[in-house]
Design a binder for these strands. Structure first.
Lengths: 166, 166
DNA sequence: GGTCATCGCTTGTAGCTACAAGCGACTGGG
DNA sequence: CCCAGTCGCTTGTAGCTACAAGCGATGACC
């Protein structure tokens, strides 16, 4: 294997991208853990449920939208269920499937947590960017995402979310 | 707290960015674990050492350049030392400090691992982007990085790396 | 030169994720 | 029917990271 090395521009972009990818999850986790005792992934799960019809989704579908493996989601949902934020019930139409549903407490949790999380996202990302850079970022992240996720598993979730928003 | 919600453009960019941030580490880890039994963070540590003078760095400096906490680095370097890729020695000038140095085996490991890693980076990131997008990405990631890392700890490492490259 | 705060690093514990194995439910061919 | 194969999900184990406490070395100050 004899690949071409990165150009200076590519290397500069790469070092910064790697730093962002390592730091951003920590910042998001930190704020949510302090203010709501939630992981960013926990929040993602609750948020996806909160936008679903009946605030209910099958585990497999929820795993797709949160971009998680099924074992990981299973552990996380079990912990959220122990805290009363989510409840699970077997699907009436398919005995193999499990439906996860947001409880009233879970719904309240999402609504009281969202503003702080949103403020963090603004502060650390969008306040630093011009409107032009926001659309550049959308194009860049979209292009990279296609390479990272060839089957479009995550993209499906994004499109579905966009559709629900009208 | 009454923040303004995200615009449609911002939301689209955000969903894609979150997906990239969650998927990219897994892809990098996966390739390196399969091909070299290394975490991406392990590789980052070895790579930073391989570029340093004498292939040696103090733990604190290495932590800055790899964007890690000191306890995390300590555990990782201990494991790398057990595998013979790195060795540690007390700093002769400051009895508190520890120098980490790449061994011959570690140097060989980096050289045989770099091409595959580089190919993965190209395949999943830069092959998807135009040259214009690469420089846009550098600007965007740089701007976000300033917000994520106000003291510029990581930025120092990046600048230092750039300086070494001339 | 004694005392105290700080530095640099290590170690211990708790919690989360990945991987693999396992279990019941469903489905299609004979 | 029955049986093999698959699906959907859960559970168990190993490994990594975060946080906090701890330890020796150093430097500032009197």
């Amino acid at each position: 294997m004899e690949p071409r090395w990165l150009t200076d521009d590519e290397m500069a972009a790469w070092l910064r991208l790697v730093a962002v990818v390592e730091l951003l999850p920590g910042v998001l986790d930190g704020q949510l853990r302090r203010d709501a005792a939630l992981t960013h992934f926990d929040y993602h799960v609750l948020a996806m449920l909160s936008e679903a019809p009946q605030r209910t989704l099958r585990m497999t579908e929820l795993a797709t939208r949160t971009n998680a493996t099924l074992p990981r989601l299973s552990h996380v949902v079990r912990r959220l269920e122990e805290r009363g934020l989510v409840e699970r019930a077997p699907c009436p139409y398919d005995g193999r499937a499990t439906n996860a549903r947001l409880t009233a407490d879970g719904w309240a949790k999402v609504r009281e947590t969202a503003p702080g999380h949103l403020a963090t996202v603004r502060e650390h990302v969008f306040d630093a960017l011009t409107p032009e850079q926001v659309s550049q970022l959308e194009a860049i992240a979209g292009a990279v995402l296609e390479r990272l996720d060839p089957e479009g598993r995550v993209a499906v979730g994004i499109e579905a979310a966009a559709r629900r928003r009208g």
